[in-house]
Design a protein around this nucleic acid. Structure first.
Lengths: 102, 102
DNA sequence: AACATGTATGAACACCTTTTCAATTATCCG
DNA sequence: CGGATAATTGAAAAGGTGTTCATACATGTT
């Protein structure tokens, strides 16, 4: 009931591992609500496009993100609904807890 | 509104990083509902007490877990309500998704 | 006090990860 | 086609992480 089999546990762990890197967490939070290009994400996070692209490959491989080409850019968006819902909840929780202003 | 400041983002990342290791995830899932001793966790996860203890130190440092001595053993339990709620939700989600039997 | 049990700690090792840089591929426009 | 802008890829460097083993500490028991 509150247990997971080995495969499920591994998958869950993989997911958390992806979220555990600050760059990747930033990427996911950036394209959680709307698609964003690699360059736009890089600019927003003040990182190189190369770095972002490397991380996006990992995020793609774990199906946390999906990219679609649009002209010369590629638009990425969070594709896993669990993750999106969970991140929204976490962000909410943190906001409530610290009661901060927009 | 859906953004976090740098500190909050760092903290969230740290939390996910802790969940991202299979041994630590196993520990947290083990003592999510009730306290468990180091030895009991080690047995359950088929790992050495030393290894579990090392990981518990990290989990303590990030306040994800709290331990209280009880005789010669120490009982550990998940102490972060966000994490507990979130893990419960994740487990639920996975169960729903894969529609598996108890 | 001596012993047994349970937990914590430190050092060492192997392994993996993140990041950067340079080079390559893809797409659009003149 | 040639040039410009975006994104991807591969290799290499640097640093970090998980695990084991041996040892120390803490608590209860005889």
């Amino acid at each position: 009931m509150t247990t997971l089999d080995t495969d499920q546990l591994t998958e869950l762990g993989e997911m958390f591992r992806m979220l555990g890197d600050p760059t990747r967490l930033g990427i996911l939070l950036s394209c959680m609500e709307q698609p964003l290009s690699v360059g736009a994400i890089a600019t927003k996070l003040d990182a190189s496009a190369s770095l972002i692209s490397h991380h996006l490959r990992l995020l793609r491989a774990t199906r946390l993100v999906r990219g679609t080409r649009d002209g010369r850019s590629v638009q990425y968006v969070v594709s896993d609904d669990h993750v999106r819902d969970m991140l929204r909840n976490m962000v909410e929780h943190i906001h409530e807890e610290t009661g901060d202003l927009p």
